[in-house]
């Protein structure tokens, strides 16, 4: 497929989605959502207001903290579990099963432990985002080809050189994939946190819009969240693919 065809297909998909949106609006009416063009205009308008940015800053800072903590803790734990095979084999299914539980039920516990401030949101983001980082890192270390380490030994690399020139480049692509998944889940965690028992943030804006039947606000904020999530995810995905091709 040529680049032009790809661009054409992408445009067609986008147009089809907008058409579905418009059709849903026609069917469900303004009590459910606002039409694409009006929503986009209102979203742009919102982006110019300090109130919106007040909420957005709250969300973004909680999100940034939870991504940072998930990344550091997740990579550290993953490397540890990967290096100590037995610990890794014990932990892996436990982590996988933590990944599949409805974590939202744990949110009240976060609130009871951390209070109603941003720390509960950050902690909740971390319990969503950290597990995939651990699992991907663990897998990367576990599946490193032994011949690479033997090659490093035959080239008489020091442990530091081995880490710098062999281990890190070998596990980097998988860790990048883990971080991408973790990134999405942190955002999910923080937004869910804000939707429940919170007075600040993007999640609160959405839930407040729902509860006060402010359809215009809900639809516009949802659009902003989707554009942000899809945009960030696509950028990370492109980076991810580049690392994997190289690796």
């Amino acid at each position: 497929m040529t680049r032009r065809e790809g661009l054409l297909d992408g445009t067609l998909i986008l147009l089809a989605m907008l058409a579905v949106w418009q059709a849903l609006y026609q069917y469900a009416g303004s009590a459910a959502l606002t039409p694409p063009w009006a929503t986009a205009r209102y979203a742009v308008e919102l982006l110019g207001t300090p109130t919106f940015w007040g909420h957005a800053t709250q969300t973004l800072s909680a999100f940034a903290w939870s991504v940072a903590i998930s990344a550091v803790l997740g990579i550290a734990l993953g490397l540890w579990f990967g290096a100590f095979r037995f610990a890794g084999d014990v932990a892996e299914p436990m982590l996988a099963s933590l990944y599949t539980i409805p974590k939202v039920t744990l949110y009240p516990v976060m609130l009871l432990l951390f209070g109603l401030g941003p720390s509960a949101k950050i902690a909740f983001g971390v319990i969503h985002g950290m597990i995939p980082v651990v699992l991907f890192t663990l897998g990367a270390v576990k599946n490193i080809r032994p011949v690479l380490l033997r090659a490093a030994r035959s080239l008489r690399l020091s442990p530091m050189q081995t880490a710098r020139f062999v281990l890190v480049p070998a596990v980097l692509p998988e860790i990048a994939s883990g971080l991408r998944v973790g990134f999405s889940l942190c955002l999910l965690g923080v937004l869910i946190g804000e939707m429940f028992a919170s007075q600040r943030g993007i999640g609160f804006l959405i839930i407040n819009g729902i509860n006060s039947h402010n359809v215009k606000l809900t639809t516009a904020v949802t659009l902003i969240v989707i554009v942000f999530a899809v945009g960030a995810n696509s950028a990370l995905l492109a980076l991810d693919r580049r690392l994997h091709h190289r690796g």
């Binding site: 849903l24 069917y27 469900a28 009416g29 009590a31 459910a32 959502l33 998944v181 990134f183 999405s184 889940l185 955002l187 999910l188 937004l191 869910i192 959405i206 729902i210 359809v215 809900t218 949802t222 969240v225 989707i226 999530a229 899809v230 960030a232 995810n233 696509s234 995905l237």
Partner: peptide, 18 residues
Amino acid sequence: ASYYSVPIFVFYPLLVAL
């Protein structure tokens, strides 16, 4: 690839309307 980065229950009001 981006699907799971969007919290789907933001669509709940729409689903209720539908």
